[in-house]
Design a protein around this nucleic acid. Structure first.
Lengths: 131, 131
DNA sequence: TATTGTTATACTCTATAACTATA
DNA sequence: TATAGTTATAGAGTATAACAATA
């Protein structure tokens, strides 16, 4: 079990490094939704980290041209963070790598996969199935 | 999915902090097997980190009285790391917390649990089932 | 000559505190 | 007065390089 946990950690770090990002910045990128700019404060709450750390992480994303700060339309204190075109593309690439099924899962039979899907949905209901 | 990954990360950090350990030191503790001392070099390879970092992590474990350095019986260059009695006990406590089934899993029916077990065994075969 | 482990040191990531600007 | 974000700074954790002891 520890093995599995650790290998996942290393896999995540490798995917991040392949794009020149640290794991924190990669998570930041994944949290941002295309076309939905997000305030720094929201990001700090979502990532359960300090606001100053968000400043640093968003700086990293901006350096890579993946995101950009924009003024908030009504509250001039707020700066929103939006994905750039490059950021949207990179985010999609990372997501597909990160959630790609490992070989052992792809080797499961169609029947096993459907059963697995049915049971796992009980563990982590998608937003659509929540009341 | 990202949510799940992050919440797991925070859970792991909380369990480590409850024992005054950082996540790295906790992983170190979990890797050590009672009655099976392990060289520093082996640990560095296992955790894919630098040897100097192992020195630091084992220092943390020794400070907490969880592990101790011992000479290698034949190679005087090598220092092995062994769990103390306290380390063995703490390790067991952490392991049970870390791998405790979440409420959503405990709520599954007996039948679903058996099915899940059958399918998951195909993904991560235990050492016994490996050829 | 190669390997094990440690020390000295620097770098990355994160948090705390003080600050500016808005609300 | 409270909140959003930044800057300055300190701390934890990790890596690199140089070193001593041993193989």
């Amino acid at each position: 079990m520890t093995e599995l946990f650790l290998s996942r950690k290393h896999q995540v770090m490798e995917i991040a490094a392949a794009h020149g990002l640290n794991p924190g910045a990669m998570n930041a990128l994944l949290f941002l939704q295309p076309g939905e700019p997000c305030s720094m404060r929201t990001l700090a709450d979502a990532w359960k980290c300090d606001a100053s750390n968000v400043t640093w992480l968003v700086d990293r994303l901006e350096e890579h041209g993946l995101a950009e700060r924009r003024p908030h339309p009504t509250d001039r204190r707020v700066r929103t963070v939006a994905l750039t075109r490059k950021g949207t593309k990179t985010r999609a690439q990372i997501e597909s790598k990160l959630f790609e099924a490992p070989a052992s899962v792809r080797d499961l039979s169609e029947h096993d996969l459907e059963t697995l899907d049915r049971i796992l949905r009980k563990l982590a209901p998608s937003p659509e199935t929540l009341s």
